[in-house]
Write a protein that binds this DNA or RNA. Structure first.
Lengths: 340, 340
DNA sequence: GTGAAAGCGCTAACAA
DNA sequence: TTGTTAGCGCTTTCAC
């Protein structure tokens, strides 16, 4: 686009009868400019409809007031409200958000990170801590301020704002077992370069082993994060000799998909089969039976990640990671098994 | 952040033993560079981990390779997949996406638009065509390339990539009436500076009037775009003397919320009351009864908006608006009324 | 308190 | 095909 219409600092300077330096000061450190000149300047800015050129400013100050978020997908409600909170917290400080998605692919994540850094992002919010060395190398080499979220691990000297996936998933499994379930199926998310999915799966395994008393995993399937994949995963579970009484799912969308399939093949819910999701997105409450799930502290994480990043960009060094609590939400989809 | 570590074009030039211009060319018009030098350059870029500096590039070329999308909310699945498609189509051309949200508030939309333009966005994707004059004035004054979506109207000389809200909603109403429904309640979206909500409402009104045969709207409520508001709206509908046999909702989330409330107060679905949503987001298929709704061409719109914007930014003038088709999706939540 | 002037990293004529 | 060079709009010393 031809920005021929955009007035520059020089235009303002001419109109106000001062130097460009004064205007820059008036904009960035108003105290250092005399009140009278400041007024002249403000008037000139107003009549010209001037807005600072981003490129010029970025070039001269090497600050962009932009941070990037790289998330797996926008098409999933999972990250939406956290991202929203992240954006709102940034907006308070006049920082804008660049969003990029990876489609759960680490190559694409690398590309997106490079692109965002090239765009001048002052900082980066990343989901999870599991990515190839070359990606971390790039981040380290460029000294990109960053924070990881949705997990509670980070590399040496780096920080996270997240929660304990393993514990949350293990806790959910334990609740199911306490209600009497012993034959447990697991629909896991894709664990390849996805530490959250891995942690959730491992958390379930550990909880089952710890519980003992005959509790076991009848079958475990990995499914991408989509409703349709869940149906296939559920079919696979039901193709096993030993059928489960409860299905633990890596997220609510998978649970909803699996439940839909279960009903299609004539299983009555929740009596004949229990389901547990993860995330507590909006649909968990509205499906029937309402989905038992784990609430993820999305908003808290988004806000904390923003504040952390702003502080780090601002040069603060006294920072620390935060682990937020998840909450087990018991709804109708989880009932004691009819036959133990 | 201190970008002291970021290598510059000059660093690459020194290492590769060529001029900065050649590198710039290798990056932007690879065909114009000899294969051998291009290889040297690529190697140098790799070893240094070089990424072009955004500010410098923007300043020199007055192109940022950035476009902005201003949407009402990210926390609603409604816009998610369209935005995803938009982003993916942009990524093909190396353009990154800036996202800002308005919370359905036109003042905030204005602020966000100014911010994105200040950031140097080459173009803008906006939802709907209904906004205050001052917002349009700003866009016109700055000559911002833009496209509106989710609607099929635009200002003189401007373009849209959308669908016909009125016709789609009217069509859904007609289907309900054809099935025998005569007493119709409407849960509309907020119509204040929201032409999509207005059009959907008006489309229903027109269809009901056209149908005749005693068809009428028993009550109409406006509800914000949230599940919880739908419950209150439904209560209000049921507080009227004349009860409806079908409730037409401005979107799926409202429908899901209203259905949840209906079930709470002992109405059996879909026998005693039918529901129709709009958007066909993921939850429409998984709730019980599955929601009859209108599929919105999200992905098509997102992709078209991106291609349109890229073309416009690229200076093409032979452009035209596109209206995509919606599709009525009949599921279990709409049945003929028991008592006519 | 204010102005002059030197870049920031890149692109795009123009020359070679 | 490649190199030289003049800016793009802004911030930031350094004088005054």
């Amino acid at each position: 686009m031809v920005k021929s219409t955009a007035p520059t600092l020089e235009d303002v300077a001419r109109l106000a009868g001062v130097s460009t330096a004064s205007i820059s000061r008036a904009l960035n450190e108003p105290d250092k400019v005399a009140a009278t000149t400041r007024q002249k300047i403000e008037k000139a800015i107003d009549t010209l409809g001037y807005t600072p050129n981003f490129g010029g400013r970025a070039l001269a100050s090497s600050r962009t007031n932009t941070v990037g978020a790289v998330i797996p997908s926008m098409a999933n409600a999972m990250f939406a409200s956290g991202l929203q909170a992240f954006q709102e917290a940034l907006a308070v400080d006049g920082v804008t958000l660049l969003v990029a998605t990876t489609g759960f692919d680490s190559e694409q994540e690398f590309r997106q990170i490079k692109s965002l850094v090239g765009q001048g992002a002052d900082g980066l919010m990343l989901i999870g801590n599991d990515r190839p060395d070359k990606t971390w190398d790039f981040i380290d080499k460029r000294r990109v301020a960053h924070v990881v979220s949705w997990c509670n691990v980070s590399r040496e000297g780096q920080y996270f704002a997240g929660f304990d996936n393993a514990r949350a998933a293990g806790d959910a499994a334990e609740r199911a077992m306490t209600l009497g379930h012993r034959r447990i199926a697991v629909i896991s998310g894709q664990t390849l370069s996805n530490d959250r999915a891995k942690a959730r799966r491992d958390g379930v395994h550990a909880a089952v082993a710890r519980f003992g008393d005959g509790a076991r995993i009848t079958h475990e399937v990995e499914a991408p994060y989509l409703i349709d994949d869940a149906a296939a995963a559920f079919d696979q579970i039901m193709a096993q000799a030993e059928k489960p009484t409860v299905v633990l799912c890596a997220n609510d969308a998978l649970a909803a998909g699996a439940m839909m399939r279960a009903r299609e093949i004539g299983i009555s819910l929740p009596d004949e089969m229990s389901f547990v999701g993860f995330d507590d997105v909006g649909l968990a409450r509205v499906i029937t039976p309402a989905l038992t799930t784990v609430r993820v502290p999305q908003i808290e994480m988004g806000r904390a990640a923003a504040q952390f990043l702003l502080a780090k960009i601002g040069g603060e060094t006294d920072l620390s990671s935060t682990t937020f609590e998840t909450e087990f939400i018991l709804r109708e989809s989880l009932k004691p098994p009819l036959v133990p």
